[in-house]
Design a protein around this nucleic acid. Sequence first.
DNA 1: CCTCCACCGGAACGTGAGGAGT
DNA 2: ACTCCTCACGTTCCGGTGGAGG
Length: 416
Amino acid sequence: MEENIFDNLLTRPSLFINKEVMRHSHSPTELPHRDREIKAIRFNLVEALKGQIPSNMILYGVTGAGKTAVIRFINAQLEDKGKQIGKPVNPVHVNCRTIDTQYRVLAFLGNSLLESYEKEDIPFTGWPTDRVFDELVNRMNRRGGVHVIVLDEIDHLVKKAGDDLLYNLCNINDDLKRLGQARCCVIGISNDLKFTEYLDPRVKSRLGQEDVIFSPYDAGQLSDILEKRAKEGIKSGVLGDGVVQLCSALAAQEHGDARRALDLIRVSTEKAEQSGEDVVEVQHVRMAQNQIECDQITPVIKTLPPQQKLVLFSVLLNERNGLSNIATGEVYEIYRQACKHYGTNNLTQRRITDLLSNLDMLGLINSKTVSRGRYGRSKEINSCMPISIDATELMINADESLNSVEKGKYRFQSRL
DNA sequence: CCTCCACCGGAACGTGAGGAGT
DNA sequence: ACTCCTCACGTTCCGGTGGAGG
């Protein structure tokens, strides 16, 4: 039989039991170290089971603090219990990053309430918004029970589409009361503690009746989480010494992001698998860390204006030549040479200062102003990219236009 | 204590692209 | 099609500055 390129990979045993468990999209059934938050939300939402309207809430916390996982978990339990005792609860989870206009959110909510015998769907577009709203209210009423609407990344929605939707949703109970028994409560999830500043005061007071703040995980807590998940997702004995600890520590530096921790351990295991090893070692974590950072950085660089890219490239070139703590003047000098090389005209140093502080804000470089006394006052500039990432490759990946002059660039580099 | 380096960063202004209003 | 306005991007000009070295 002819050999297939996938044969080898298929026969090799995987290091995972279930890779899905190691993704951050997976909803776990146990949420270590979120007892306080679960308690607070549970205490409010239990009202739904008593036939009352729970308060609207906003959940705050940095990315990867478990907000989404917690609310999904609680809602699932709530729905089950509601069915059991005959007090129906209908949770709906809306991700406002992908569904980010008033119309789309309303249509999404409405369509999530379709019964099997209902044919007419709310179209993507076409209806006036208030008709969609009326339809939503009708469907909620027909379905009955308590509707729990979770608006994930609500800050994103508000910044993009304003607070009209929230105003309407906050007042939806008035309409529902007129029609029947159905009730509704809104739970917003936000990364941004201060997003309520964008809200109309009336919406603000109605929506933020109860706030829950998720504090970031520390390294120890992240370890617990990883170990719990790894038990389900990765074969035992696969994770080498210190791997979990390292992943937790790295993620703890990244403002306690459990997503990052899970990504790290999953990608590390993939790396070990790819190189045909049976045990994940610390080196695989380093490789994973690099890859994740690279995957994060590339799209940011891609969207940079050309001159900004060149400035960044100049910093990287300096670094590749073994320099660190580069001064603004040095970057500018390289930058000017680079411009000359590519035949673009160069900007003034004043402008470069601004571009550099821009790169600093984007987290692509680190810079601090220092005084070297007699030798002037300047910035010490370092890139934030792992040295193992090849600067040229990174820039070429991120910029098609550089591709055409790639050959010249190598010559340019070797001249430095 | 003073000087003076090598830059920082604010202010004012010019330019062109893109959007709103008419 | 037209004006008006805003915004991002750049330039020119220039006063300001922490500290090593005299």
